[in-house]
């Protein structure tokens, strides 16, 4: 059980450091909010009802802001060489992956939970329901699962932060498509069971890429 102890220790360390500075949470949240507002100006009066575009707005805001957060998470590990400190410890590399990934996941979920009420008020929609949250969770999980590996790569290249969206978005596309489709379906009054194929697709993506990340993360952090 040392594996999960290490995972929890890493998550706890990230949360504690974050609560102290709130660097990631605050900048990611404000950026997500700004994205929503900018989209509002981009679409308003051009589409018959904002309800038609809100699902897209939510997912674009999450992926843009989430990318920002992922970058921060590994820059922090690199700056004082603390990632090397983690690697020196007698801890499975996969435990480091799960620790960082789950911490990233928690951060993005917290931002989403803060963002959703505002989106509800802005666009007069009901978004805090079981199915909506499930869809958000599954999509965000896929985002964190793949994004954690890619951000670990991006920060140790010359281009650093700039590279992450270029690497991440083409691989992430199915999650975005499925997320927009399902959130849109829910907004239009469909039930989740009518969108079973989309749920399966995201679940397959999440599970599949968690396994791939589990197998490859060691190659990303070790020399």
């Amino acid at each position: 059980m040392n594996f999960w102890k290490a995972v929890v220790a890493i998550i706890w360390k990230d949360i504690r450091a974050e609560l102290r500075t709130k660097d990631i949470l605050s900048s990611v949240f404000v950026f997500a909010l700004l994205t929503v507002i900018v989209f509002n100006f981009a679409y308003e009066l051009r589409v018959p009802s904002m309800k038609m575009v809100v699902p897209g707005i939510i997912w674009v805001a999450i992926s843009f802001a989430g990318t920002l957060g992922l970058n921060r998470a590994f820059v922090i590990e690199q700056d004082k060489g603390s990632l090397a400190g983690l690697l020196l410890a007698p801890v499975d590399r996969a435990a480091i992956y799960f620790g960082k990934m789950l911490a990233n996941l928690i951060f993005i979920l917290v931002v989403e939970l803060a963002l959703l009420p505002l989106v509800m008020i802005f666009f007069n929609l009901s978004l805090i329901t079981g199915p909506h949250l499930l869809v958000l969770f599954l999509g965000t999980y896929g985002f964190a699962a793949v994004g954690t590996v890619f951000s670990a790569m991006a920060v140790s290249t010359r281009a650093r932060e700039v590279l992450l969206p270029v690497l991440l978005f083409p691989v992430l596309l199915p999650v975005l498509v499925a997320g927009v489709k399902m959130t849109g379906g829910l907004v239009d009054g469909a039930s989740l069971s009518e969108m079973g194929n989309w749920l399966q697709l995201v679940a397959l993506y999440d599970v599949g890429f968690t396994v791939v990340a589990y197998l490859t993360f060691g190659f990303v952090v070790e020399e």
Partner: peptide, 15 residues
């Protein structure tokens, strides 16, 4: 069984 001191301090600023 290894203890390492390197150029980088291997510590967390925010802790």
């Amino acid at each position: 069984y290894l203890g390492v001191v390197s150029h980088a301090p291997l510590l967390y600023d925010s802790l």
